[in-house]
Write a protein that binds this DNA or RNA. Sequence first.
RNA 1: GCCGACGUAGCUCAGAUGGUAGAGCACCCGAUUUGUAAUCGGGCGGUCGCGAGUUCGAUCCUCGCCGUCGGCUCCA
Length: 654
Amino acid sequence: MLVLTLPDGATREVAYGTLPRDVVGSIGPRLLLAAIAVAVDGEIQDLMTPLRKGGAFQVLTDKDPRALAVLRHSGAHILATAVRRLRPEAAIGFGPAIDDGFYYDFQVAKPFTPEDLEQIEAEMRKVVAEKYPFVRAEVSQKEAKQVFSDDPLKLERLEDFEGSDEIISTYTDGPFTDLCRGPHVPDTSYLKHFKLLSAAGAYWRGDEKRQMLQRIYATAFFKKEELEARLFQMEEAKKRDHRVLGKQLDLFQFFPHAPGAAFWTPKGTQLWNTLEAFIRERQREDFLEIKTPLLYTKKLWEQSGHWGKYKDNMFLVWDKEEAEQGSSPEESLSMSLKPMNCPSHHLYFHADKHSYRELPKRFVTFDVLHRNEISGALSGLTRVRQFSQDDCHVYLREDQIAGEVKFLMDFILSYYDTFGLTARLKFATRPEQRIGSDELWDRAENALRAALESTGRPYEMKEGDGAFYGPKIDFDVMDSIGRAWQLGTIQLDYNAPERFDLEYTGEDNAAHRPVVIHRAVSGSFERFLAILIEHFAGAFPVWLAPEQVRILPISDDVSGYAKEVTAKFRAAGLRAVCDDRSDTLNYRIRDGEIMKVPYMAVLGKREMETGQVAIRVRGAGKKQEIVSVDAFLARLFEETRTRALTPSSEGAAS
RNA sequence: GCCGACGUAGCUCAGAUGGUAGAGCACCCGAUUUGUAAUCGGGCGGUCGCGAGUUCGAUCCUCGCCGUCGGCUCCA
């Protein structure tokens, strides 16, 4: 007998193997109608899987977020059911629920077209209407092989069970049977609000050496409004897309002549420079900025380990002299554009004798870096081949690690704070591909973790996700589309000091190895700007806005005055533009709103006489403020100086 | 890199079973001098991504290339 404890504290004894639906039904028939699945000691199972252990028994209805994953997983089966009806020859891969929906992978002769998706979606609605129960069966390995004898992908999956005592189960909804551990909703009619979203290729088992399957992505919800909200949100996200806004606001462009490398327009360059000036200012006190070469001989990369581990991602450069000395074409590619700044910094640190008193020593560099990303990975400003980092390397004594990590964390978090961004911390440990001994890794991981814990901030673990030279703390920031971007990073490195023979002279007058910390705040300027564009929906706070104020004379009579006012703002260091085009005021205001200029100042005869301006705040409509020119100037100046998050980007998103 | 979709004027997009293309906006000119999200009229503007093939004829069909976009385990 199994003992189940209900949420109200009551207990029930049921026989081993009882179906949850019988238990739920005995609690109440209405509850059975609302039940999607149950949780036993927090473990989700469906209503048709026999109970094998007792514990806290909870019924999940559509209000429970855990039930949504069950619905979506069933959605994947319904998708496969429909595809199998339309294309009986399709072999079926995996079809899990994912964070915001579900997908299913198929092996088909012809990839799916958008029209196919419509047809499949219509077929799914039929399957839903036919209301097939999900029937669970538990089978032996041999029986399973029988059932899936014509499906090579499932047979391969079955091999994983060889020698395992895991229960093999199948689920059948009408004509379709899938190898599946569940859980599932009771029948296909539960899938009411769903939409197929896209089709794309996906390697079988994520392995690029294996065949490519065709994946269909979809999403589903219990409530119609939730599905509609999701689709609306996807539309809104498109409008905020930095690639769309970058064009609309004239910030940057790409040319086929330089894939993965952006051209920054005058406005975009202004934005970039503002950001760079900001971080320079922040780093003025405690950091030393240096500029280093972009191109190096392979000797440096051999020393750093990049030549062995990272060569595929580097842009190699042909050396004429090497070729003339008879080296092969391959060997003559003996130089490389730098993909990272670290080796340059180490080289420079190594060049001088350092006292323990100088440490920690922090070098920062904003140079251009190149990484040869595969063409399919390129995407807007977020995945590029040429970019710049606010890259810092700290050289310090081992006893300074805790203090330095705290210093850097505070620095990074307060930086994000300026933009109204919040970050989550992740601690990443040694990856499979790495350099350095296990002892060194033990020391590095322990030291970094201790430093992280001493700050008392919450963090998540990312096992095996460290850099090839050391463990790291990553700072993930969420953007408006809900994507988490890894921006900042603090990486501990015991290997580089060895490879570059770095030393400092200790109090004891003997040579010691320093430790290196790699630190980036923005990740890359390109990607950070992309995130800022999406975060603010292009409606930048006044301190960041390429154009801070647009001054609009109502008629030619006052354009002279408007120009004077503009000059005054510019003399104060503000980015002001006078729009005295002969178009109507309405036209010019519309243009300013579309370009998301934070403030417009309208000048007419009244204002000229009183030395005032009529301010229009971005997104606030015709609600205007009449203030003196000097007061307005002081306000803009102050908002810029304090890097205020004003004016709000509310209402400027569309 | 791989799978798929896409590439028409500066931008957003129409278009023809293969007979060399259109709109709006932007831009230029003229009129209008405007009080808070598009004044009116006129004009300029395209080797229909690039290259080859099929054809009397290709922007449309075929092949190759370039680029952009969606994706390429959140494991039955």
